[in-house]
Write a protein that binds this DNA or RNA. Structure first.
Length: 207
DNA sequence: GCCCAGGTGGGTA
DNA sequence: TACCCACATGGG
């Protein structure tokens, strides 16, 4: 555990959590790692340094993560928000109550519910359950939640059945991701995987 | 070559 | 509100 709430999200600082939350949008994590490594090698994993880059240059550095022009705009929006409202320090987000902070994050260009919640849980330490594609697929295909359930509905479904604990949400999410990835590795043998025939691949209908 | 990945914003009906 | 669609790299 490298910092505060800590845990499973692969990052060394709260700021890296935030960057990762944006860069991983619709992207495989190894591509995010490549982009973060490039930034790290240039000493740019820090708000002020990153904010000093022209957008075109930032986009080039984000290229390995895919949709890099989009993500460059979103990262800059995040940096602007951090600078304007929090003195450029992610740590200062902790001073705002969750009920007030989440709506403010959702106003930032490029932060939807999942990215905002990842920041709230993994960078700030609030007890917020992060609903990602793995979560949605697993719950839908196990028949635990309505297949058409939207983000807020599924989040409420899960949260209402668990104690409100950031550490637990952190671990629960990690287990879901591990389960989904493990399943992907064994997918030629769906029938023998831990989910007993439930396929987690995207686009595969239930049963 | 094709499908897919830890989403989001913008456009249209 | 409820769908489409663009965004784009790298792995299987």
């Amino acid at each position: 555990m490298a910092f505060g709430p800590a845990g499973w999200w692969p990052a060394q600082t709260p700021f890296e959590v935030c960057l990762g939350a944006i860069l991983v949008q619709n992207t495989a994590w190894p591509n995010v790692e490549r982009a973060l490594a490039g930034l790290r090698a240039r000493g740019l994993l820090e708000p002020a340094a990153l904010a000093s880059l022209p957008q075109a240059e930032l986009a080039e550095l984000l290229r390995p993560a895919g949709t890099f022009n989009v993500k460059a705009r979103r990262v800059r929006a995040w940096l602007e928000f951090l600078h304007q409202d929090f003195g450029g320090r992610v740590e200062n987000l902790a001073g705002v109550p969750l009920g007030e902070l989440r709506p403010r994050l959702l106003q930032v260009h490029g932060l939807g519910p999942e990215s905002a919640d990842a920041i709230l849980l993994y960078a700030v330490g609030h007890p917020v359950f992060v609903v990602d594609a793995y979560t949605t697929r697993i719950f839908a295909r196990l028949g635990l939640a309505r297949r058409q359930a939207g983000y807020d509905e599924l989040q409420a479904f899960i949260t209402s059945r668990l104690p409100e604990d950031a550490g637990l949400f952190n671990d629960y999410h990690a287990q879901l991701v591990r389960l989904a990835k493990e399943h992907c590795r064994v997918r030629p043998r769906c029938a023998t995987c831990p989910l007993e025939g439930v396929c987690l691949r995207r686009g595969v209908p239930m049963r």
